[in-house]
Write a protein that binds this DNA or RNA. Structure first.
Length: 238
DNA sequence: TATAATGTTTGAAC
DNA sequence: AGTTCAAACATTAT
């Protein structure tokens, strides 16, 4: 699940802030019993992470590829159940951390935060020698960007995904990071309205070029070997 | 029905 | 000792 989906869940959970946990369950190996009786003080998201903040610890939830969240119990093994309102997490990675650990996640790098700081991101991006496909997926630079957003951003910028980031002209780098934020925002709004993101995607899982209609190259590339879509003719390699 | 995919952490192997 | 890489987790649409 990419950043926009996580932010939406954080918003949906706001209604249980201030409530106390009366029951816990689930197959997480984390010390869930310590949540019983605790008041949920706040819910935050940072990139693809969701933080449930209690007085002396924080539950970090990461939905990975297949994680999900529900307000109703399903007939599936639940990873973490919290009876607050009624909150269930499935197939998620759950980790108990301290509030100081949460502070290490810099909101200025979260493409979904109103504190997002384009200058700071630019500073981290401009001298990076890695392929742009890897830099966009780096959560320490673009928190919240996942493979869908990455492909859309590369597409809008018409940049070959294996371009060395520091070789890309600065104006185009700026376009890339602005697009990362803009498309993430669009993604979030679409999900919030409960619509299909598919309509907004012009590059991810498309097999004809958005610009010239020729056949797209599809390959698993980059450090994390993710499906990437580009047009050999229209996308410039730097 | 088999495959591939909105992802990250861990620890073995080099 | 630093880097690389497979494994593990696990569901669902196509």
């Amino acid at each position: 699940m990419e950043g926009p989906g996580v932010k939406l869940i954080a918003e949906k959970l706001k209604f249980v802030i201030g409530e106390k946990v009366v029951e816990v369950g689930g197959n997480t190996k984390q010390p869930k019993e310590q949540i019983i009786g605790k008041e949920l003080l706040n819910v935050k998201s940072h990139g693809k992470n969701l933080f449930l903040i209690f007085d002396d610890f924080v539950v970090k939830v990461h939905f990975m590829m297949f994680g999900s969240f529900s307000l109703e119990e399903r007939e599936k093994p639940v990873r973490l159940k919290l009876k607050l309102g009624n909150v269930y997490f499935y197939n998620a990675s759950i980790k108990f951390i301290s509030y100081n650990d949460v502070k290490l996640y810099d909101s200025e790098l979260d493409v979904l935060s109103k504190k997002w700081n384009r200058k700071k991101v630019m500073g981290l991006m401009k001298n990076d020698k890695r392929p742009v496909t890897d830099v966009l997926l780096d959560q320490a630079i673009f928190a919240g960007v996942g493979n869908i957003i990455k492909n859309e951003v590369i597409g809008y910028a018409k940049v070959h995904p294996l371009s060395k980031t520091n070789n890309i002209p600065l104006a185009l780098q700026r376009k890339i990071l602005d697009e990362a934020r803009d498309f993430s925002e669009v993604f979030f709004q679409v999900r919030k309205e409960g619509k299909w993101l598919r309509e907004k995607m012009k590059f991810y899982r498309k097999y004809k070029c958005n610009y010239c209609s020729q056949k797209i190259t599809v390959k698993k590339i980059g450090k994390t070997n993710r499906m990437t879509f580009w047009c050999e003719k229209c996308f410039v390699k730097y």
